[in-house]
Design a binder for these strands. Structure first.
Lengths: 260, 260
DNA sequence: ATGCCTCCTTGCGCCAGCGCAAAGACACGG
DNA sequence: CCGTGTCTTTGCGCTGGCGCAAGGAGGCAT
């Protein structure tokens, strides 16, 4: 059993509950159900009625989607402190993805109706939820754009850097990604095949950028990977004179001849 | 000038204002600013501070993103009745995309702070906004998945079907997509090059699936395109016995040998 | 130790889609 | 009616990445 103080901290750290005072957090926590999920087990299942909202209080989990033809994609990993299932606040929707525990997970649950009630009682929460969805949407849009415009190498480099940031632990000469990452996991994450991932990692290993092993990646030269990933950000268009936008786009389009 | 009744209908039809009574709609509309945007002009600019929320009352517009290297992607088209800039309700964020008018557009604007105030005054609006973002997120996730798992042909077929549905007008023997669609627009929409789009459309034209012209596509055999697009939906996983999920995924993965 | 299972590597052949270049078609304005 | 600019088509060569197949290597249980 996890101490209450830890759970409260968990909620406090979560953007959904930002700006909620301690008394309210106590009330909210008191209404939560806690459940332990074994590694490999399903937290929520794609297609099921979205009945519960949750916060991961411990452990890590994969968010995956299965397609009609049985292929699966790995959308992202979530770690302790992150929430899922905001969709449960809305009536009659289904989970759009499956969440599968990687480690043993502690999960705090609330019925969707309870979350909806919180939105009424603490209006800030509704705004928080909206903000989360807006930001997530931006992130997804960015990844969508990456998929359209970048090549496998770049996407893989960026994925490793993100994972190192979220789940990295310092290691001698590098950052170890503490998730059990198979080549196939990485392939599903960046949208390629396990062969290509393997080949690319081997190459980077020899070049001294990373250090790989069975289900293990250590980032030894983050700067090198960043160079491969390229500038991650979208052009901050408004940094230039406002009216120059159209001209700049045109010029850039004219100059973009090499796709490299 | 557009008649007030038309504008009210426009708001009523918009999911943000769902379940708002007529009196409230009047109040909301009274606080709106209306602006006309000429074809090709920018409605909101990527990177600018997200200061306003808007509803398109007339005309159609492109949502595009420019990348650091000057390439651009076309996220989607919006038509009269659709909203944009929900992000303006939140403090200190920037528009993540540019909206460019295709036709002459009439746009209703509210300052972001006004929208935020509406969320306080009419709590349903905040829930509506959340729902919109959740659904948009699902759609984006679906397109992300398509990009990862499907080939150009499928994505192009699906894009045409969607466009025909949203902006189609009945034509002799087919549905005309009324947007001025260049091959490059389509390429940016499905994530390919104008060459591939041109080649594919030529092929479909000869096969009698579509009828193409300069900036013009008529879908003559929607069923044929649907066959190419394949099953659009994600596997409704929970339709099978709940516990069969894992087995089914495993079986499907074993059976997915040919990527075709 | 031994065997087994899963994961990883790598050679090879292949093809979808890219991107150039050059020519053709269409629309519009003068 | 012609010129001009934009959009479209299509031949061609190329390559990034796919996917198979076969072998290797790490880890776990008995």
């Amino acid at each position: 059993m996890i101490a209450n103080a830890v759970l409260i901290d968990c909620l406090r750290a979560n953007p959904v509950f930002a700006q909620l005072d301690d008394a309210a957090l106590d009330v909210v926590l008191a209404e939560a159900t806690i459940r332990t999920v074994a590694p490999g087990d399903i937290v929520v299942r794609q297609g099921d009625a979205a009945s519960a909202f949750g916060v991961l209080a411990g452990g890590r989990a994969k968010m995956i989607q299965v397609t009609a033809d049985g292929r699966q994609i790995l959308l992202r990993y979530i770690v302790a402190g992150q929430e899922f299932g905001l969709i449960a606040a809305l009536p009659d929707l289904a989970y759009p993805l499956t969440i599968e525990a990687v480690d043993e997970c502690q999960v705090l649950y609330w019925p969707g109706a309870t979350l909806a009630a919180y939105f009424g009682r603490y209006p800030q929460l509704a705004l928080n939820a909206l903000q989360i969805m807006v930001l997530r949407n931006q992130e997804l849009q960015a990844r969508y754009r990456e998929l359209l415009t970048e090549r496998v190498e770049q996407r893989l480099a960026r994925a490793l850097l993100r994972l190192a940031q979220v789940t990295g632990s310092c290691d001698k000469d590098g950052t170890l990604i503490t998730l059990p990452l198979t080549r196939e996991d990485l392939a599903e994450l960046v949208g390629t095949t396990l062969y290509t991932v393997s080949r690319t990692l081997s190459q980077w290993d020899q070049a001294g950028l990373v250090n790989t092993g069975r289900e293990r990646v250590v980032v030894t030269d983050a700067a090198g990977l960043e160079a491969i990933a390229g500038t991650a950000e979208v052009l901050p268009v408004s940094c230039v004179a406002p009216c120059a936008l159209v001209e700049m786009m045109t010029a850039a389009r004219a100059a973009r001849t090499p796709r490299t």
